[in-house]
Simulated assay, not measured.
Amino acid sequence: MTMATTTERPATVSTALRAGDFTGLAQDYSQHRPDYAPSVLQGLLGLLGKPVAEVDFADVGAGTGIWTRQVQASGVRCATAVEPNTDMRTHGQVASAHTPIRWLQGSAEQTGLASASADWLTMASSFHWAQFEVATGEFHRVLRPGGRFTALWNPRLIEVNPLLVEIEAHLSTLRSDIKRVSSGRSGITETLSEQLWASPHFEDVVYLEGRHVISMTPARYLGAWRSVNDLRVQLGADKFEAFLAYVEERIRGQASIEATYLTRAWSARRKG
């Protein structure tokens, strides 16, 4: 896949973009977003209590299938991606064309999956958009007895790279009350263990985390920022474009950007 240079501009995204709506962002999302720590994937598979080749897997809120393809490649028996957004789902189907992944339209609250059809159901970088009580009830229905639900995120660990700290800090000059809805280190993740333990649908809540480093070209790094929904909505079109211009100028001349990602995963076993 040919990578755009940092001076090329993508097609304009609608200024009416809503929180959680990735329409128009799917191409950047598919091309530039990072994967998840392989060590965490192996740990999560180990919690399932059965051979990987016997695991029926479903990824809900799959986006363009970055995590879905990573799990499918681990050798699960079957993999199903559920995604409500047509643009994201279409790009995911193209990216997964040479895999046996099945794609469905559906949401966390109404997956469209059959009852007791999955051994493992996940939401990767998307559970913060779900209605917790409705979604966990739906996951309980879809999972088999002993099956597990996993919510995971892969936020950047910017503290280890001063350049990334500087870029992130620039956001506060554009809007002082920025809230990173999907950062994976705030919001729902602050109380997720307690919420899952308190749920009537799940038990045996386990938390895992791991790091991995990705060396990004400037084009990929800028593309990853372009795919972010929550900043685009909070800043508005003009300020978001100003931020992208700042990032582009700040990384000019860099051969690569070393980005450390922190995969954080919460796995809970179906109760009953």
Rank of each mutant, 00 (worst) to 15 (best):
T260F: 02
G63S: 09
S117H: 08
V52P: 05
M123P: 00
H32T: 12
V76E: 02
V205T: 04
H98L: 08
S30C: 15
M3I: 13
Q72G: 10
D59S: 12
G147E: 01
E194G: 05
V71A: 11
P155T: 12
G272C: 03
I167W: 04
I188K: 05
A95W: 08
Y221S: 03
Q27T: 14
S176L: 03
R175A: 14
M1L: 13
I101W: 03
N229R: 07
R226C: 02
Q42L: 14
T136V: 12
K239E: 08
A4T: 12
T90L: 13
L231A: 04
L25E: 02
L17P: 02
A108F: 09
L157F: 13
S182I: 07
L17T: 15
A242W: 02
L164T: 01
M123C: 14
S193A: 11
Q105N: 13
F22V: 10
R141P: 10
E203S: 13
G46T: 11
E248G: 03
T136S: 03
G187F: 07
E166G: 02
E109W: 04
E54Y: 00
S125N: 13
E54M: 11
L48F: 04
S176D: 13
A53E: 13
G20N: 01
G146Q: 08
A169P: 00
Y29P: 11
S182A: 15
V13S: 07
P155V: 03
G112V: 00
A53Q: 14
W67V: 10
H98E: 11
R185G: 13
L196F: 08
R180W: 13
A11L: 13
F127K: 04
L235D: 11
L47G: 05
F149A: 14
A11H: 10
W197V: 15
A255L: 02
D59E: 09
L196S: 09
G46P: 04
R33Y: 02
L164H: 00
P145D: 12
S227R: 00
E83M: 06
P155W: 12
T217A: 06
T7Q: 14
N161S: 03
R18N: 10
E166H: 12
Q254T: 01
D56G: 09
L163F: 07
T99I: 08
E209H: 14
R180G: 08
V181R: 14
Q105V: 13
T191P: 05
S215I: 06
S39H: 12
T173Y: 12
T80V: 15
G253C: 00
L41W: 11
R226W: 06
R180Q: 08
F57S: 09
P218T: 05
G43N: 09
E194W: 01
G92L: 04
V76L: 08
W67T: 10
A151I: 06
I214F: 06
